[in-house]
Design a protein around this nucleic acid. Structure first.
Length: 105
DNA sequence: AAACTGACTAATA
DNA sequence: CTATTAGCCAGTT
């Protein structure tokens, strides 16, 4: 990796409690990187498979899983979230009104 | 250094 | 609800 900002992002993601999800923008805000929503996704993309970061709890503002490719991974991510108690609707979207993580400011 | 790319968001139509 | 536009910023080429 090439940037230290990743650490802040990972730390923010790790703070997401079980059974909750957060949007990229929120993670960026909590990590102290106000407008780096894109960078958050970029960092998660570079996240190694052996990391303990619950990246599956990070979704886009629509409440949907946002991978650029690979629908299989999406299914697995969804299964993980469902196992944590996060409900998906028929469209594969999460009800952010209920499951979005409310970080303490 | 300049241009391109991307796991994004918000505002508008 | 979807489509389009613009704004944002770091990593890659």
């Amino acid at each position: 990796m090439s940037s230290a900002s990743y650490e802040a992002i990972y730390a923010a993601v790790r703070r997401i409690p079980r059974g909750r999800v957060a949007t990229y923008g929120q993670i960026a805000r909590v990590a102290g990187l106000p407008h780096h929503a894109r960078q958050v996704g970029y960092s998660l993309h570079a996240l190694p498979p052996d990391s303990k970061v619950p990246w599956q709890r990070v979704i886009n503002a629509r409440g949907e899983i946002s991978l650029r490719a690979r629908p299989e991974c999406e299914q697995e991510q969804r299964a993980l979230l469902e196992a944590e108690g996060v409900a998906f609707d028929a469209s594969g979207r999460v009800d952010l009104k209920r499951f979005q993580w409310k970080p303490r400011a």
